[in-house]
Nucleic acid binder design. Sequence first.
DNA 1: TTAACTCGATAGTAATACTATCATTATTTT
DNA 2: AAAATAATGATAGTATTACTATCGAGTTAA
Lengths: 235, 235
Amino acid sequence: MQVLLTFNINAHLYLRDPERSEIGKSIIKQSIELIYDIGFEQFTFKKLAQKIGSTEATIYRYFSSKHKLLTYILNWYWCYLEFIAKMHLQQVDDPREQLQLVLEIITHNDNNRSRIKDYNLEQLHSIVISESSKSYLVKEVDAINREMVFGPLKSFCQFMATIIATIDPEYKYPKSLASTLLETAHDQQYFSEHLPNLTDNKAGQAHKQYVLAYIQQLAFSVLNPNNYGKRARLH
Amino acid sequence: MQVLLTFNINAHLYLRDPERSEIGKSIIKQSIELIYDIGFEQFTFKKLAQKIGSTEATIYRYFSSKHKLLTYILNWYWCYLEFIAKMHLQQVDDPREQLQLVLEIITHNDNNRSRIKDYNLEQLHSIVISESSKSYLVKEVDAINREMVFGPLKSFCQFMATIIATIDPEYKYPKSLASTLLETAHDQQYFSEHLPNLTDNKAGQAHKQYVLAYIQQLAFSVLNPNNYGKRARLH
DNA sequence: TTAACTCGATAGTAATACTATCATTATTTT
DNA sequence: AAAATAATGATAGTATTACTATCGAGTTAA
């Protein structure tokens, strides 16, 4: 197993850095598979230990709870998305095309544009869709937030918001639009797959393409292209 | 305790109908208070039993699990919202004003327009914001969905979608927009309160007003008022 | 008044989410 | 190569959770 990408993930999330040992990397990799397979509620350290051929005790030496492990995985994902997005954006100048590209990335409509061996990205995406809100929809959110463990998500939103603000500097809600597009990408794919009555995806197929088309229409309806460069021109 | 409103809630959700006994109504009422106070994860039937001066066994005679109880409460809320919305909408003809009104209702910006003694609506709204996704973001979603326990949510979305389709019959995503506005109303209020960096609510106050202003702008940017009545005129 | 129903009380179970200890095995330092 | 240090495996144990089961007392309805 070769890890190509490593990100600086908040040390509050782990006791021992999982990137620094084979068993640690195995914990992350198999967690993704296991959470994907059985869902976060059914996921336990005991089952994970069995899967990696180790014991609960060992896993507890890396993560003090399954919630922190989930947040760790999600942080990795947000760091990864921002990295990939910034990489591809270098080739694009028009901020509208940039936003388009980011929407393709967050809906995973970028056909294998990003091949990576580390973790199973399709499973990871699926976890982000169905489990990510569980990392912050908890009573202790303010306390955990103070430890900065939601940094990568905020950073990715800020990154999207900057593009949005470039397209339309008059638009008053760049950050809210960014977080809305992100959340909507997830909700709508989940709805399209499991509660299709909450969407207009009649065909019931091609969830990702449906979601992309929808949020694209949403984003570009809200932003007024006539304002592009407005603020800049004033100077 | 006097219950003014009762709705037909899917019988799959309970073993004994809580509306039909004082202790049953007490279970619902105190559940709302307790889930609001300690969050769904910390919420147990044991604690609830203590609160209502009864025992776990009694509560289990009404609900087979805390998940079903949560879904029951959420169903009540969606039935209630649809009822209130339909009531107020009778006075309004313009579908744009109708949508405006619905947005006020879902963000709870309707100042005491709906006084009700049954349950604490502010707490209920708060539960909807932070716990509602937990009722469907579970591995067994397809199985539970087959029992029609998400009917009231779907019905409310359909109701919104109809208004949206009246405003702009050309718009291709009325249901997705409805579910997006609903989810966004919740996400953005949660973010505004707990992760304000994901929003543009600088003041950090007046969360509900902020959210309303934002989703209003969102909704009416997407819908083209020029298409109002278009389809009708063709006939 | 007897049957049906509801509730309270108690007991019990398997699983979960940990914590603790200790011997063994690697790894690093000298 | 030996000694010191650290990581792991194995095992045990605890409080809590999410139930299930049983029994007797009180209440209501025919």
